[in-house]
Design a protein around this nucleic acid. Structure first.
Length: 496
RNA sequence: GGCGGCGUAGCCAAGUGGCUAAGGCGACGGUCUGCAAAACCGUUAUUCCCCGGUUCAAGUCCGGGCGCCGCCUCCA
């Protein structure tokens, strides 16, 4: 069974067959660089990052383009409000974008082109469209003739006649038809502009993606992605102008991710309910955020809440702690071969061995990361189970099972972009961070442990318990192990 | 009005025709422990918004209804 992908154009899951076997050409609409990115941007970025990682894992050679829109109305407006140039604003926000993406562990794209660096390509494409009769210049603007492109509306499922009623013509526009959209906009006074055959101006929004995409990927891409809201008009227009220019299929598979909502409502600036990536990562671990963003099928809405993210953080920590424990147990010396096979342990080993296959099956079904994560969690439980068996009866086959189990889980995690930190350090730094958040130092805790250990040696359980209860009340749990007493910050204590 | 999506346990969420309806979080009981914690085991949906229909068989397909949401204007 091969990879199946839901295609917005056909509204069906289709078998994924790239134009050139073994190679995937993929374009995802990036940000308009005028403000901080919010969780919605994070979802899109992380979803497509997981897709790229999975395609790479499957052995495809992936050429991935993610653009920056660094010139448009919003940028011009915001820049003038702030009293800086459009360039300064977009540079700053692109910087912020990279900061966020690095923190989210989103892989860099093969090409990350900017609209302003491809003006010549854009002008050439517009000229082609004019030459082919799909576009016309009017008063310094250039418009695309929507009605000339017969399958206009196919992607978004819209009927051209019905679009007419909603279409608007802004003041000063000289469109032949209200449906037509701008490929090139004449410069207004004091706006950034570039010279063109039609006078000074700047590119319309849609044309940049066609121009840059085709420059780096050629006339046909295998995958074109972005948020659901981009389907109309952005991707509809991109498709129209690209196919009009080349006469070839622009995109084989259109992939769109759903929105992040808050309390069931779409995040938006006007509702004031958006949360930036930066703010979230102040309070939450980035891998927990990734896991949360991948915990639901990518096409549906995803409701954000602190609680939901906290749950993922707990689950992630369980994975890390399992790996740490398994690593410890696996490194103990083993004296003998297993006398008799423990049925549970054998089953655990089987579960761990089955993980890659199950994971692949889930991901092959339109990147079902939610199911894939489920399999990963099951494997973690199997690892813990095996860990107990190995702890009781150390033997070579168990510790080998643990070692390969760890390896398997980590390799699967890597495709989702989680469990990439050093497990020992992750757990350790989580505990230390938690401790400082609780206003405690490790020395205080270690002192208390020493006192309690002495009390326990005297079998003074009352004293020992009161020390433990005191720490527990402060958010620190003590755990007595064969190697002595260890401490951990209770996850409930550091969550909001 | 047009287009699209969603409604599965206390909460989140897979599953789109057929063995016992994944998984996470939470809760409860147990194993372990001096007692705990962690981990593990068990329990927590005789049933998938409602009503009809197709089928030997439906959460899964079809029809109708109710509820929620998104797009149709810049938007991940």
């Amino acid at each position: 069974m091969g990879l199946k992908v839901y295609n917005t154009l056909s509204r069906k899951k289709e078998l994924f067959e790239p134009a050139e076997p073994g190679h995937v050409k993929m374009y995802v609409c990036g940000i308009t660089a005028y403000d901080r990115c919010h969780i919605g941007h994070a979802r899109s970025a992380v979803v497509f990052d997981a897709i790229v990682r999975y395609l790479l894992f499957k052995g495809y050679n992936v050429i991935f383009v993610r653009n920056f829109t660094d010139i448009d109305d919003k940028i011009i407006k915001r820049a003038s409000e702030e009293g800086i140039s459009s360039k300064e604003l977009s540079e700053r926000e692109i910087g912020h974008f990279y900061e966020d993406m690095t923190n989210l562990k989103v892989l860099k794209a093969t090409f990350e082109p900017r609209a302003t660096e491809h003006i010549a390509d854009i002008i050439r494409l517009i000229e082609t469209l004019i030459a082919r009769g799909y576009a016309y210049a009017a008063g310094g603007d250039v418009y695309f003739s929507v009605r000339r492109f017969s399958s206009y509306g196919a992607l978004s499922g819209r009927d051209v006649e019905e679009l007419v009623s909603g279409a608007r013509v802004a003041v000063g526009e000289q469109k032949d038809d209200p449906l037509d959209f701008a490929l090139w906009k004449a410069a207004k006074p004091a706006e950034p502009s570039w010279d063109s055959p039609w006078g000074h101006g700047r590119p319309g929004w849609h044309i940049e993606c066609s121009a840059m995409g085709m420059k780096y990927l050629g006339p046909t891409f295998d995958i074109h992605g972005g948020g659901l809201d981009l389907i109309f008009p952005h991707h509809e227009n991109e498709r129209a102008q690209s196919e009009a220019a080349t006469g070839q299929t622009f995109v084989k598979y259109w992939i769109h991710n759903g929105f992040v909502t808050i309390r069931g409502e779409k995040m938006s600036k006007s509702l004031g309910n958006f949360i930036t990536i930066k703010d979230i990562l102040k309070r939450h671990n980035s891998e927990a955020l990734r896991l949360f963003l991948l915990s639901k099928q990518y096409r549906g809405p995803l409701d954000y809440s602190e609680e939901a993210l906290g749950e993922m953080e707990t689950a992630l920590e369980r994975c890390y702690r399992a790996i740490v424990e398994a690593g410890k147990v696996a490194s103990r010396p083993v004296k003998k071969a297993c006398q008799r096979e423990d049925v549970q342990a054998a089953e655990s080993i089987k579960t761990l061995e089955a993980l890659p296959g199950q994971f692949g099956q889930a991901m092959d079904d339109d990147f079902n990361t939610a199911q894939a994560i489920g399999f990963m969690f099951e494997a973690v439980r199997a690892l813990n189970r095996l860990c107990q068996a190995a702890g009781k009866r150390p033997c070579a086959s168990y510790s080998d099972g643990l070692k390969s189990g760890i390896k398997t889980i980590l390799s699967i995690g890597r495709i989702l972009g989680v469990l990439e930190d050093d497990p020992v350090q992750y757990v350790r730094s989580r505990d230390l961070d938690g401790l400082s958040a609780l206003g405690l130092t490790e020395d205080e805790v270690l002192d208390a442990i020493i006192q309690r250990t002495e009390a326990r040696a005297r079998k003074d359980w009352a004293a020992a318990d009161s020390i433990r209860q005191r720490l527990d009340g402060q958010g620190v749990a003590l755990k007595d192990t064969p190697e002595g007493t260890v401490w951990a910050v209770k996850s409930s204590a550091v969550l909001p």
